[in-house]
Write a protein that binds this DNA or RNA. Structure first.
Length: 108
DNA sequence: ATAATGACGTCGG
DNA sequence: TCCGACGCCATTA
């Protein structure tokens, strides 16, 4: 066990913080990995990426993109479908969202 | 203890 | 705009 709590197989505390935040990103809005780390004042963009890689499937993962408004090659297809479905400002040609108009600051 | 590895980010050319 | 070099930092080898 890595920690004394050793409690079950649920996501580590940090992962839960990230997942909670991702869950509240409104439809047609996104946050970058770096935005999330900054908002939580915890971890770094890389850390957030690691959380998404491990538990992303449990949340609206397509609303978390890199600073270029993109996701890894393999997820672009599925993400694109969601973007179109919720009206996300999306550049089909470059396969990336327009951060200038859909970036969310974390405030409702 | 050292090195490689990532759903990353900034900067310079 | 695109791309490579670096910096970053927990995790894994």
């Amino acid at each position: 066990m890595s920690d004394s709590i050793g409690r079950s197989d649920e996501p580590p505390a940090y992962a839960q913080l990230v997942l909670e935040l991702v869950r509240r990103i409104p439809p047609a809005k996104v946050m970058t990995y770096g935005d999330i780390a900054e908002f939580l004042e915890r971890g770094t963009a890389r850390q957030v990426g690691a959380v998404m890689a491990g538990y992303g499937s449990q949340v609206p993962w397509w609303r978390v993109v890199n600073a270029s408004g993109q996701l890894p090659e393999q997820l672009r297809g599925e993400a694109g479908a969601n973007y179109l479905a919720e009206g996300m400002p999306y550049d089909l040609e470059r396969e990336r969202v327009r951060l200038s108009s859909c970036r969310w600051d974390g405030m409702a």
